[in-house]
Every structure is written in structure tokens, then in C-alpha cells.
């Protein structure tokens, strides 16, 4: 298919989105990610039955936590797509990149950048 998608998206492979826990999502932001999205299988199509449904709930919980932290839950999103939906994958990558571009950089990274500028 040779589809293009924004080069700023870094892919981390997991056996199932059910493996993704709250702490993994938080650590991505802690380490400076501007946005994170999870691409799970279509709902009802999980090989492990409920992996993607569990992931959705964890994403919802983490969104609230990110709001509490002040980073903003809108920087995190759950998407569902099948392995055969290449064009959808590229579309989601563009959609999420646009959203994060509008939101600007992760406030933690912005603050760290300022501190580094000050110390020279």
C-alpha cells in the first residue's frame, strides 16, 4: 500500500492493547511525549476477548488522571482498527498529529526546555 503517515509517530508494539497499563501511558508523558494514542483491534474482535475493552477503560482512567495532573486528557486517545485497515491507520496518525500540533508541546517538556535555556 506504501501509505504515508507523519514521521513524528513512534510505534511501540505490544502483544495486545490489554497489556497497556496506566503506568505505561503516564511514563510516556513523563518522558516527554506530546501525545499518545492506542491502536487496538476493533471492539468485539479481540483475540483475547476483552483486551481492547480493558485498554479503553484504562485510557479513560488515565485521561482523567492527566486532567488532574494538568497535562490534559485530550493528549491521549484510544482508536480501534483492524490489521487490514492501513488507510485508517494513516488517517488516525494524521488526525492525532494535527490534534497535538494544535495543543502544542507537552507542558513538562516545555518547562524543562525553559530550565535548560536558563542554565544555558
Amino acid at each position: 500500500m506504501r501509505l504515508n503517515y507523519p514521521s513524528n509517530v513512534k510505534i511501540i508494539k505490544v502483544p495486545c492493547t490489554g497489556k497497556v497499563d496506566v503506568i505505561h501511558l503516564l511514563q510516556a508523558f513523563e518522558r516527554g511525549a506530546d501525545g499518545v494514542y492506542i491502536a487496538g483491534c476493533l471492539e468485539g474482535d479481540c483475540h483475547f476477548l476483552r483486551g481492547n475493552l480493558r485498554a479503553r477503560k484504562r485510557v479513560e482512567y488515565t485521561k482523567r488522571l492527566l486532567d488532574e495532573i494538568g497535562i490534559g486528557g485530550e493528549r491521549l486517545q484510544m482508536y480501534n482498527m483492524s490489521a487490514a485497515q492501513g488507510p485508517r491507520f494513516a488517517e488516525v496518525a494524521r488526525e492525532m498529529t494535527e490534534r497535538i500540533m494544535t495543543l502544542g508541546p507537552n507542558p513538562i517538556r516545555a518547562k524543562k526546555g525553559e530550565a535548560e535555556m536558563e542554565t544555558g
Binding site: 503516564l26 513523563e30 488532574e68 494538568g70 518547562k111 525553559e114
Partner: peptide, 11 residues
């Protein structure tokens, strides 16, 4: 992790 982020955000 959450407290780390809250404090980093505040500099």
C-alpha cells in the same frame, strides 16, 4: 509518576 509530572510542570 503523577507527582513527578505535576512538579516538573511547575518547574
Amino acid at each position: 509518576s503523577a507527582l513527578n509530572m505535576v512538579r516538573s510542570k511547575e518547574g
